[in-house]
Amino acid sequence: MQGVVKVNSALNMRSGPGSNYGVIGTLRNNDKVEIIKEVDGAYEIRFNGKVGYASKSYITIVN
């Protein structure tokens, strides 16, 4: 499943599905991501070869 990031500035990509996990990357508006699955209000995603988590509130599914 594919998604597009929709933010005003940037969205943190984290090592786990919550803000208490470390930041492993930054997503920008209109970045395209692969959605692997939904976990606790976040999506597990793949972006630029990395797998991490981002809030589903800022990712629009575009299948």
Rank of each mutant, 00 (worst) to 15 (best):
K6P: 01
K6N: 10
L11C: 15
T26F: 10
M13C: 08
T26G: 03
I61T: 06
E44A: 08
K37D: 10
V62R: 05
T60F: 14
N48R: 11
R46N: 09
V23R: 04
E34N: 06
A42M: 15
V7W: 05
I35T: 00
K56F: 03
S15W: 06
I36R: 04
K50G: 06
S57D: 14
F47C: 05
G25A: 14
F47G: 02
V5C: 06
N12H: 15
N48K: 12
G22C: 15
M1W: 13
G16Q: 05
I24D: 01
G49Q: 05
V4F: 07
K6V: 11
R46T: 07
K37L: 07
D40Q: 10
Y53C: 02
V4S: 04
I45N: 00
N48T: 03
V7Q: 03
K56P: 05
G22R: 14
E38D: 06
G3K: 01
Q2S: 10
K50C: 09
P17D: 04
A42R: 09
G18S: 11
E38S: 07
S19L: 13
K32H: 11
E34D: 10
V62S: 09
G3D: 01
I24M: 05
K37C: 12
P17E: 04
N30L: 10
I36S: 03
K37S: 14
S57W: 12
I61K: 07
A10E: 14
V5M: 02
P17V: 07
E38Y: 04
F47Y: 09
V39Q: 06
L27N: 00
K56I: 10
R14H: 15
R46A: 08
V7M: 04
S55Y: 08
N8Q: 13
S55V: 10
G18P: 02
Y58P: 02
I36L: 13
K50N: 08
M13P: 02
K37R: 15
Y43W: 07
L27G: 01
L11I: 15
V5W: 01
E38H: 04
Y53L: 02
G52R: 00
K56C: 08
I24V: 12
S15V: 08
N30C: 12
E34Q: 10
V23N: 05
S55G: 09
D31F: 04
A42H: 15
K50Y: 07
S57M: 14
V39E: 06
I36N: 03
G18V: 02
D31K: 02
G52C: 03
I45A: 00
N8I: 11
G41V: 04
K56Y: 03
K37Q: 11
N20Y: 09
K32E: 09
G18L: 05
D40R: 10
M1Y: 10
R28S: 10
G52K: 01
M13F: 12
V23T: 08
I59P: 00
A42C: 15
A54H: 02
Q2V: 14
L27H: 00
G3V: 03
K6A: 08
V5P: 01
G49E: 06
G49Y: 04
N8S: 13
T26L: 12
N48I: 04
L27R: 00
P17H: 05
N20R: 11
A42K: 09
S19Y: 12
G49T: 05
N12P: 15
V51S: 07
Y21N: 08
S57R: 14
M13K: 02
V51D: 03
V7R: 05
I36H: 03
D40H: 10
L11E: 07
R46P: 01
I36V: 09
F47L: 04
V5R: 00
L27W: 01
Y58W: 07
Q2P: 09
S9N: 12
S57K: 15
S9E: 12
V4Q: 07
I61V: 12
Y21G: 09
V5D: 01
E44C: 14
G49A: 05
V5H: 01
I59D: 01
M1T: 11
G52E: 01
I24Q: 03
N12Q: 14
K32C: 13
V51C: 08
R46D: 05
V62F: 09
N63R: 10
G3P: 01
T60H: 14
A10W: 15
D31R: 02
N8F: 11
V4L: 10
A54W: 02
G3T: 02
I61D: 03
K6H: 13
S15Q: 07
F47A: 07
G16H: 07
N48E: 13
I24R: 02
A10V: 15
S19N: 13
T60M: 14
G41K: 06
I35M: 02
N48V: 04
N29P: 09
N29T: 07
K56M: 10
S19Q: 12
N63P: 13
T26Q: 13
K56S: 10
S19D: 15
K50I: 14
E38L: 06
A54Q: 01
I61A: 05
S55A: 12
V23Q: 04
L27S: 00
E34T: 12
V51W: 06
Y43C: 03
V7I: 09
D31N: 04
V4W: 06
G41P: 02
M1N: 07
V39M: 09
V7P: 02
A54F: 03
D31A: 07
I35F: 02
V62E: 09
M13W: 07
N8W: 10
R28P: 01
K6F: 07
N63S: 13
T26N: 06
G3I: 03
F47V: 07
Q2Y: 14
K32G: 05
G3H: 02
K50H: 08
G25L: 12
S15G: 08
N30W: 07
Q2D: 07
M1P: 06
D31V: 04
I24A: 03
G41Y: 08
V62Q: 09
G25F: 10
R14Q: 09
D31C: 05
R14K: 07
I45F: 05
P17G: 03
V4D: 02
V23E: 03
V5Q: 01
F47P: 00
I35V: 10
S55Q: 11
I61R: 06
V4P: 01
I35P: 00
V62P: 07
Q2A: 10
I59Y: 01
T60R: 12
N30G: 14
D40G: 13
T26M: 10
M1D: 05
E44M: 15
A10N: 10
A42D: 15
N8L: 12
V5K: 01
V39D: 04
L11N: 02
G49C: 07
G22E: 15
I24N: 04
L11A: 11
N8G: 11
R28M: 12
S55H: 10
V39F: 09
N63G: 13
S19V: 12
A10C: 15
G22D: 15
G25M: 12
G22V: 15
A42N: 14
K6I: 10
A54V: 15
